[in-house]
Nucleic acid binder design. Structure first.
Length: 743
DNA sequence: CCATGGGTCCTTTTT
DNA sequence: GGACCCATGG
């Protein structure tokens, strides 16, 4: 009693800290609610505030509330906030991603529809391999159609997205769709789309199932609503009905996932689809300075479809946004990190107060090199993922077979990568035979059966390998997660394999396996009942290992997509160039261009106090050196809001920097783009300055000094044969080999 | 039938 | 510079 009273006071106190609009949204009555919340307008506060309000003031039981987010990072943030607002409470609302919600549903209730608990989640890689196999079997390999494209078309079909009807890719996708689904079914596996789709279909088909979930959750709160796709929206609506206690928070200006089926029309049409919906707008920004906000508003104003919003702040004007031009990515990295070191000293900031954002993961490399060199601690959020390392993927595949012997992709990988003496022919034979078998891949656990399929030398090797897996599979029910992982690491032979190699790389890989083992042990300690299968699901959905250790003072590097929902005192946006933002894959369609614009808007609005943007003169791409132009979106910013070497001297719609002007810290003069347009997209050969002739003496980083004995290939794939002393003759691609000419 | 080495081709964003 | 494919030798 005391507790509730006190908590209620605390909540009243909390409500007082909200502005009128926020408070109206938090305290509004039941039924569908849409909150249009601009960047930095306190979206998360409103969402968590609403959950607390439902509990404290409207006497809703916490366990009947579910808060859905789109990314793991957002989910973590929400959980933390809920826990701190509800300090001391034992019951908290459910909070997590759509995907994790669905996994939970499938595991807890799937058996009612005859579904197994021990399913596997196929990641993008597994799914694409299935597509590749089907294309090969059906021999529909067509020029210019990649498995990746077909997979994404399948994904679009599943998510009810617009299909570019009758394109070759879509037709192939439709053609193999059934085969793809039955492959997954046989493997007892779900791809990311099925994870959402299956529970939705179950609810539509089985009243019992639907009623169960509808009764279980009375209130659904949805974060980043602009990023939900049709399936997610339908799913949420179905659970929330018939009362429709759906509280959605979103910003159409920050919709950056349409390529994944996200449909910001869900935001625009919310009122039409849910009767009696109330709509609130949050336009006061608490995050950024007026300068940053103005510059960001200049960019987003060019967007075609949007709810018109005018973000304002009562924060001080602040400093102008800095725009800089550099010669090469390495200079950009050096200068930005130099700037961070400098302002850290000068303003007494910590590393965690800075973030470097970029459009593509590949760009992080340049920054990492400088950071390693300077021994500055950093994290690449979502970049080089721990669980994507080869040794970890191999071992996870081994565990996947043990947890779910139907998992065909795991079997393939395990044979291909771990089993010595078993080659592709044997794998194909086993896979093909198991598809005819009623038990599908599970048949491989039966050594008598394997014995009947495999002959010759591989037979013994395969039997030996399979027997171990069969024993481990049988051991699952009677062992803890940690015990199974320990045994598997030994039995798989991975440990002794890497130990025997004893080189730098293998030590690294071994270390990673140990780290994985420790992770499993820790998880086992926290949750003794956690099954292997559940553990593997967690891994499939949460890819950042450093999700846990966010306490230390580290510099954050991440893509703009990953940065959504986050804020930092100082933000650097690197590579603000044509072909990057907007990405070259997005420049043909107006829709895609708009999304790129929103992406830059999201990047800029992450900054609280200072915002730096930069672009480079030329960037190595695909083994070539591409000359870059500044992003077209930069020219939408009123130049008076910008400062620094890189700001066009006069207002012009397009501009590109003059070559020798990029040396640092000198004011930059700009030429109108028209004057240099022909060279703007010209690609140059990396070693174009160097002519190699037969007889030239060259130096290679690894092979040392050698003599050029032959030349082949054209301008873009020039190769030279070099005779090295000690290493013999090598054929080298000039663009990668980085040869130094000595004579 | 397997292992190995050289050749070819690709690189957006996330669950 | 990495993943994947194909040819070759064991």
């Amino acid at each position: 009693m005391m507790n509730t009273l006190f908590a209620s006071d605390a909540h009243t106190e909390f409500l007082r800290t909200l502005n009128v609009d926020q408070r109206d949204a938090v305290t509004t009555g039941l039924g569908p609610v849409l909150v249009l919340a601009g960047a930095g307008s306190g979206k998360t506060r409103v969402l968590t505030g609403r959950a607390v309000h439902l509990i404290r003031e409207m006497h809703v039981h916490p366990s009947s509330i579910a808060v859905m987010t789109f990314t793991n990072k957002a989910a973590r943030e929400l959980k933390e906030r809920l826990a701190s607002y509800m300090e001391g409470a034992t019951d908290l609302p459910w909070a997590g991603t759509f995907h994790s919600f669905c996994v939970q549903v499938l595991r807890q209730h799937g058996h009612r529809a005859g579904l197994s608990r021990d399913f596997t989640i196929y990641d993008e890689d597994d799914s694409q391999r299935v597509v590749t196999e089907l294309l090969r079997e059906k021999q529909v390999i067509r020029e210019g159609v990649t498995p990746r494209q077909v997979k994404s078309a399948i994904s679009r079909i599943k998510n009810g997205g617009k299909s570019d009807h009758r394109s070759p890719v879509v037709m192939i996708a439709e053609d193999i769709y059934e085969g793809y689904q039955s492959r997954l079914r046989d493997a007892n596996a779900y791809d990311f789309d099925d994870l959402l789709l299956t529970p939705l279909e179950l609810m539509m088909q089985k009243d019992e199932f639907r009623e169960l979930l509808q009764r279980r959750y009375d209130h659904l709160l949805i974060d980043e609503f602009q990023d939900t796709n049709q399936v997610q929206f339908d799913f949420a609506r179905m659970i929330a009905s018939p009362q429709n206690n759906l509280f959605a928070v979103g910003d159409d200006d920050q919709s950056i996932y349409s390529w994944r089926g996200a449909n910001y029309r869900n935001v625009l049409d919310f009122g039409k689809k849910l009767e009696g919906a109330r709509i609130f707008r949050l336009e006061q920004n608490y995050r950024s300075t007026q300068q940053i906000l103005d510059a960001a508003n200049d960019v987003i104003a060019g967007s075609r479809h949007r709810h018109d919003k005018k973000l304002w702040t009562d924060r001080k004007t602040g400093e102008k946004v800095t725009l800089r031009a550099y010669s090469r990515p390495a200079d950009e990295a050096n200068e930005i990190i130099g700037e961070i070191e400098f302002s850290k000293q000068k303003r007494g900031l910590g590393l965690k107060d800075f973030a470097i954002l970029f459009r593509t993961n590949a760009i992080s490399r340049y920054f990492e090199e400088v950071l390693v060199q300077h021994r500055i601690p950093y994290t690449v959020v979502g970049g080089l993922k721990f669980y994507e390392r080869k040794e970890i993927k191999d071992f996870i595949a081994y565990l996947r077979v043990i947890a779910n012997p139907h998992d065909e992709q795991a079997w393939s990988r395990v044979f291909r990568e771990i089993a010595a003496g078993v080659g592709q022919t044997t794998i194909d034979r086993l896979m093909h035979a198991s598809r005819q078998h009623p038990l599908k891949c599970e048949a491989i656990l039966n050594s008598t059966w394997v014995d009947s399929i495999v002959t010759g030398a591989p037979r013994v090797k395969a039997l030996e390998f399979v027997t171990k897996l069969a024993l481990l599979h049988e051991a699952v029910p009677s062992n803890t997660l940690s015990e199974i992982v320990d045994k598997s690491i030994k039995e798989s032979g991975l440990e002794s394999f890497y130990e025997s190699l004893n080189d730098e790389e293998s030590r690294d890989r071994l270390e990673n396996l140990r780290q994985f083992q420790t992770g499993a042990w820790e998880r086992s300690q926290q949750m003794p009942e956690l099954t292997l299968s559940e553990f593997l699901s967690e891994l499939a959905l949460v890819s950042d290992i450093d999700d846990l250790e966010n306490v230390t003072d580290r510099l954050a590097l991440m893509t703009i997509h990953s940065a959504k929902g986050l804020e930092f005192p100082v933000v650097f946006v690197a590579g603000v160039e044509e072909n990057l933002i907007p990405h070259f894959r997005s420049i043909e369609s107006a829709e895609a261009l708009d999304e790129e614009r929103r992406l830059l808007y999201v990047a800029m609005t992450r900054a609280k106090d200072r915002l730096y943007m930069s672009y480079v003169e030329a960037r190595p791409m695909n083994g070539r050196l591409d000359f870059q132009s500044p992003s077209r979106f930069l020219s939408d910013i009123d130049p008076t809001r910008l400062r620094g070497a890189g700001v066009p001297a006069k207002l012009s719609s397009r501009y590109v920097a003059d070559e020798d002007v990029f040396s640092r810290d000198r004011p930059v003069a700009h030429l109108p783009q028209s004057a240099v347009r022909p060279s703007a997209s010209k690609t140059l050969y990396k070693s174009s300055g160097i002519e190699f002739r037969i007889g030239d003496v060259v130096e290679h980083a690894e092979f040392g000094v050698g003599t050029v004995t032959a030349k082949s290939g054209d301008l873009y794939s020039l190769k030279v044969r070099v005779a090295f002393s000690g290493y013999g003759s090598k054929l080298l691609a000039v663009k990668y080999a980085n040869l130094k000419k000595l004579s």
